[in-house]
C-alpha cells in the first residue's frame, strides 16, 4: 500500500496549540497543501496577525512576518511592494480583521493590493477568552455580551467579505465553511484560486472561512459544527461573492 495523505512538507512537524476540534489546524493544512502543490513555498511569505492564529509562524514552513492586531494587510503591503514576485497572504481571524483591522483590510482591497487574505470567521474572540466580536450574532452570548449580543447596544454583525467585494480592487471573494469533507475540499479550491490569481498578477482576493470555537462557544467540536451551520451560516451565507470574471 502507498501513503496517499500525510503531513505536508510546508508545515513544521510540531504539535499545534489549538484547542481540540478547532478548525484552524484544518485551514493551516489546506493553505500549506496548496502551497506545496503549487510548488511556491520558496517564494511564499505569510503574514501572521494577532489572535489564536498569531502563532501560525510556528507551523508554516516558509517565511512569515508577524504583524500586530489588525495590521497584517498593511505589513503584507510592505512585503509585496518590496517582493512583487512573492506570494504574500495574510491569515486573520474575525476579531482581528473585522474590528481593529477594518481600515487596513478595506484599504488593501481598495488599492487592489496583490495579496490573498485567509479570513477565519467564528464570530468570537478566541485567544483573549471569548469576548464579543463585531461578527458575533445577535443574542449570541460572549464574555462581554453575557446576556447575548444586544443589537440596541452594539449594533449588528459586520459582513466584511461582502464589503470587500464591493471594492473595485478586489478580484475574488468567496465564503466557505469547514463542516464536511466536501466543504473542506471547496475551501481548498477557493484558497488555490486566490493564490493562483495573485501569482497571475491580479488584485486583492479574500477567502472567508466559517469556522468554530468549541471552547468559547461552550460546545463539543461536533456540536459546534452543527451550530455554525444552523446559526453563523444563516447570517453569513457561503458561496461565491465576487468572481474575477466580474472584474472589468
Amino acid at each position: 500500500m502507498d501513503k496517499v495523505s500525510s503531513f505536508p512538507k510546508t508545515l513544521v512537524d510540531v504539535p499545534m496549540h489549538y484547542c481540540p476540534g478547532c478548525t484552524h489546524g484544518i485551514i493551516h493544512r489546506l493553505v500549506a497543501e496548496v502551497i506545496e502543490e503549487m510548488e511556491i513555498a520558496f517564494k511564499t511569505v505569510g503574514i501572521a496577525s494577532v489572535g489564536c492564529s498569531c502563532f501560525c509562524y510556528d507551523y508554516f514552513n516558509f517565511d512569515v512576518v508577524a504583524s500586530a492586531h489588525g495590521r497584517a494587510p498593511a505589513t503584507a503591503t510592505g512585503v509585496k511592494r518590496v517582493h512583487p514576485e512573492c506570494l504574500v497572504f495574510t491569515y486573520q481571524g474575525d476579531g482581528d480583521l473585522a474590528a481593529i483591522g477594518t481600515a487596513e483590510i478595506i484599504h488593501a482591497a481598495v488599492r487592489g493590493e496583490k495579496i490573498s487574505v485567509i479570513f477565519v470567521n467564528n464570530g468570537i474572540y478566541g485567544m483573549t477568552g471569548g469576548q464579543m466580536a463585531p461578527t458575533t450574532l445577535p443574542e449570541m452570548k460572549a464574555t462581554t455580551s453575557p446576556y447575548g449580543r444586544s443589537t440596541a447596544l452594539t449594533g449588528y454583525p459586520i459582513k466584511m467579505t461582502e464589503m470587500l467585494a464591493l471594492q473595485d480592487g478586489c478580484v475574488y471573494a468567496e465564503r466557505t465553511k469547514i463542516s464536511s469533507v466536501a466543504t473542506i475540499n471547496k475551501t481548498k479550491k477557493a484558497i488555490r484560486k486566490s493564490f493562483e490569481l495573485q501569482i497571475a498578477g491580479k488584485g486583492f482576493s479574500v477567502v472567508e472561512i466559517l469556522s468554530t470555537c468549541p471552547t468559547n462557544w461552550g460546545m463539543e467540536p461536533l456540536e459546534s459544527i452543527k451550530w455554525m451551520e444552523e446559526n453563523l451560516e444563516t447570517y453569513y451565507p457561503v458561496g461565491l461573492i465576487k468572481d474575477e470574471k466580474e472584474v472589468k
Binding site: M1, D2, K3, V4, S5, S6, F7, P8, L11, P15, M16, Y18, P20, G21, C22, T23, H24, G25, I26, R29, V181, I184, N185
Partner: peptide, 14 residues
Amino acid sequence: CYAFCPDICIEVYR
C-alpha cells in the same frame, strides 16, 4: 478522517 483532522495526525495508505 485525514481531511477532517485539525491536528494532522493521520496518515492514509491505499
